[in-house]
Design a protein around this nucleic acid. Structure first.
Length: 559
DNA sequence: GCCGTTTTCGGCCCGACTGTTTTCAGTCG
């Protein structure tokens, strides 16, 4: 079993214990162990061989035994026993927003419902409102929750789909019958969510290629095998489709299958595919069309074809352009790593600077810093900075924006910092006017440099809160506030549409990782893809600038 | 169930919102 599968099993154990209303600290212990394993750098099997499972923080004697059993047998008897009492379908119901362990228990015990389909039927039969502590509003919310959940069934976040696609490519690269394999479709365009993974394969022998493709171990189910196509489902039910073409037709099909439908029809619909046989790369195809190469992320028919014809496309920002990260957590609040570890990881990425932006005091759940701890953290940062000439740690905070737009720290505290990221972490359901005013009020504070994850969306989990975006962009311009593209694949917020608008307004953006662990720094890949989809250049993104230019911009904010 | 330069036993994370309520339980971040 992989680390991820083991973590997931422990998480499910915690869920069942919670439904059974066992000791809350025992439940928390299982969750903590699961979390710890989920974020583990080392492979558990390797630690097992070195007899070091027990060294993992939060993993004691009992859980060590569980993990060893899962590695040895591929399953956990304790979990199987628990499932006898609480069926797996009841655990799946927990994915419905607003439906927690207590409610799941009430529904299961009173109505015997143990899957989402039956739950939906009970909602429609108005059975839920009859249960203790539940009424018609809860019933309605459950219905809405199930609808939201079902929408997400057919869509995978890029953070899940892209690594799976890359693994698949690794397999395709070494099997017989395949000359070349690349990711195409919406995953190649970097869309935050994809309906499936599309892969284009060049092959001289489709029969051999197909016979080998279907042996890929991560395939859960093959749905169709046609002449030049194989489709089915991978782990986590993610759909895939493999399209086979002859090597001579590869580049034409690469362009044909990468862009969205209107793009490809507009670009190639009137062309004879044979005109593009045996060309070496995509650049040659665009040359033959007398236009500039269009990066995959732009191939959406949003004006890029016209600009490519006049060789006027913007030069999009790249990962290599980034010189720092301006939203990073450490173990002073809810991060997993020390400031020193985050510094080393940023230096390894070639960065020249980073901002430590831990949470502020109101966010108790994330161990937000009070004034005193913030000052102490600043002293440590001063000390670390004095030891290094070539790297700068900016003293920052991710300060909570409170209900009416006031900030969690006074101006006196904020003015001591190099950088202030202000974010909303509560009261998501204010009406659109109040929520807009709240953010505008926060932006007016002279110390606020960046608004973190502007709309608060969590892909497949929580919709964005509503805002009058024109007013927000206006406020950002007037107050010289930078908007963040949060690179976490569950957020990618602001999105490409807002990013493109913002840059047209003259607003600067920051591609931030919001890292809570050194490995999260690599999420920048997703942030950069989103920025490119928003047509951003390096100059639009403040963390591509050198530290001098960046500091000057930040200092200019304070009037 | 985990953990320990105050503890091998007795602590562990809490405040706000929502929906169901006449005083609070459940969910979420």
């Amino acid at each position: 079993m992989t680390n991820r599968e083991i973590a997931k099993t422990l998480e499910k154990v915690a869920d069942i214990l919670q439904i059974k209303e066992e000791n809350t600290f025992k439940i928390r212990a299982y969750r903590k162990a699961a979390e710890s394993i989920y974020h583990l750098d080392e492979n558990l099997t390797v630690l097992y061989e070195q007899n070091k499972i027990g060294d993992i923080p939060g993993v004691g004697k009992t859980v060590t035994g569980h993990i060893e059993e899962m590695i040895e047998k591929g399953s956990l008897a304790y979990y199987e026993e628990l499932l006898e009492e609480v069926p797996y379908g009841v655990l799946e119901m927990l994915a419905i927003p607003g439906l927690g362990h207590k409610t799941a228990k009430i529904i299961y015990e009173n109505l015997g419902i143990d899957n989402i389909e039956d739950l939906l039927k009970a909602v429609e039969d108005k059975q839920i409102r009859e249960l203790p502590r539940l009424g018609s509003k809860s019933e309605y919310n459950i219905k809405k929750g199930i609808e939201l959940l079902k929408e997400s069934y057919g869509r995978a976040n890029l953070g899940v789909a892209l690594p799976m696609a890359e693994e698949f490519i690794k397999y395709l690269d070494v099997i017989e019958g395949i000359e070349e394999a690349v990711i195409v479709g919406s995953a190649r365009r970097g869309k935050p969510q994809v309906s499936d993974i599309d892969i284009l394969v060049a092959s001289n022998d489709f029969a051999v290629a197909k016979a080998n493709i279907i042996n890929y171990q991560a395939i859960n189910k093959i749905e169709t095998i046609e002449d030049n196509r194989v489709s089915g489902r991978l782990t986590y039910n993610v759909e895939f489709e493999i399209i086979l073409v002859k090597p001579a037709d590869f580049i034409y099909n690469l362009v044909w299958t990468t862009g969205n439908h209107t793009f490809r029809d507009k670009l190639l619909g009137a062309k004879d595919p044979d005109e593009f046989k045996n060309i070496p790369d995509e650049g040659s195809l665009f040359d033959l069309l007398n236009m500039e190469f269009i990066p995959p992320e732009l191939r959406e028919d949003e004006g890029e074809i016209e600009l490519a014809k006049s060789y006027d496309l913007p030069e999009l920002v790249t990962e290599q352009d980034l010189k720092g990260d301006l939203h990073i957590h450490s173990n002073w609040s809810d991060g997993a790593c020390s400031i020193e570890e985050m510094t080393d990881a940023c230096r390894d990425l070639g960065y020249n600077y980073m901002a430590i932006t831990d949470h502020s005091k109101s966010l108790h759940i994330s161990s937000g810093l009070n004034e005193e701890r913030l000052r102490a953290e600043g002293e440590l940062i001063d000390k670390l900075n004095s030891q290094r000439e070539d790297f700068t740690i900016l003293k920052g905070i991710e300060v909570d924006i409170l209900k009416k737009g006031e900030l969690d720290f006074s101006d006196e505290v904020l003015q001591e910092l190099d950088l202030v990221v202000a974010s909303i972490h509560s009261n998501f359901k204010l009406d659109v006017d109040k929520q807009t005013d709240r953010l505008l009020t926060a932006m007016k504070n002279k110390h606020v440099n960046i608004i973190g994850h502007l709309t608060g969306r969590l892909l497949n989990r929580r919709p964005a809160y509503e805002l009058h975006m024109d007013k927000i962009l206006d406020g950002a311009v007037k107050n010289k506030v930078v908007l963040e593209i949060n690179s976490h694949p569950d957020r990618l917020d602001v999105d490409e549409v807002i990013a493109r608008h913002a840059s047209l307004y003259g607003i600067k953006l920051a591609i931030n990782s919001d890292a809570h662990h050194t490995r999260d720094l690599l999420n920048r890949k997703f942030g950069v893809l989103s920025a490119r989809r928003g047509w951003l250049t390096a100059d639009d993104v403040i963390n591509t600038w050198d530290i001098t230019k960046l500091r000057k911009y930040l200092d200019n904010k304070v009037k």
